[in-house]
C-alpha cells in the first residue's frame, strides 16, 4: 500500500533518521483513508457518478449478447426474449436504468466545463449548453424509440 507514514521524519544523506531538532521540525503528513469517499456527500456523489460506467459497460455487453442471439437465428432469439421477460432481468434493467440516467444527467450538467461555444464574439452561457444537451437527449431518444417501435 502507501509507503508514506503518518509522521514524516527527516533523514540525512546516508538515510539515517535525524531526531527532532529545533530548526529541523518533524512534519505531520496525514494519510488518506481508503474510504475517503464515504465521509463527504459530494465525494460520495462523485464516486457514484464514476461507478455509472460499470452499468454502461454492462448494457454494452447485453447489446453484444442480443446481437449474438440475433445472428444465431430465431430459436436463440426466442430464448433471449423469454430470458428478458423474467423478473430478474426486469429488476436488473431497472437498476441499470437508474445508473445510466444518473450518468446522462451528470454528463450533460458537466458538459459546459469542457466546451466553450462562441457565437461571433459572445460566449454562449453554460445554462444554454446544458439546455441544448438535454433537448438533444429528448429528440434522440424519441428518434431511436420511433425506429425501434415503428419502423
Amino acid at each position: 500500500m502507501d509507503s508514506r507514514e503518518s509522521t514524516t521524519s527527516r533523514t540525512d544523506d546516508a538515510g539515517v533518521e535525524i531526531p527532532y531538532q529545533r530548526f529541523r521540525p518533524k512534519r505531520y503528513q496525514p494519510r488518506m483513508s481508503i474510504f475517503w469517499w464515504i465521509h463527504k456527500k459530494v465525494y460520495l456523489r462523485f464516486i457514484i457518478r464514476e461507478l455509472t460506467s460499470v452499468f454502461v459497460a454492462i448494457y454494452a455487453v447485453i447489446l453484444i449478447v442480443k446481437l449474438n442471439a440475433l445472428l444465431r437465428g430465431p430459436e436463440s432469439w426466442e430464448v433471449m426474449t423469454a430470458a428478458l421477460a423474467t423478473p430478474f432481468s426486469i429488476v436488473l434493467h431497472v437498476i441499470i436504468l437508474l445508473f445510466v440516467v444518473y450518468h446522462s444527467i451528470t454528463w450533460f450538467l458537466l458538459a459546459p466545463t469542457a466546451t466553450v461555444v462562441r457565437l461571433g464574439r459572445k460566449r454562449i452561457p453554460d445554462s444554454a449548453i446544458i439546455a441544448v444537451n438535454f433537448l438533444m437527449w429528448l429528440v434522440l431518444s424519441v428518434a431511436v424509440g420511433w425506429i425501434i417501435l415503428a419502423v
Partner: peptide
C-alpha cells in the same frame, strides 16, 4: 484529474480551476 469539481466550488475567487483543467484536456 477525474473532475470531482470541488476545487471550483471552494475557490474564493471564482477562478474555476476544474473548467481550466477540462478545457486543457480538450
Amino acid at each position: 484529474c477525474t473532475l470531482v469539481g470541488e476545487c471550483s466550488v471552494v475557490c474564493p475567487k471564482a477562478v474555476d480551476p476544474a473548467g481550466a483543467i477540462q478545457r486543457y484536456k480538450v
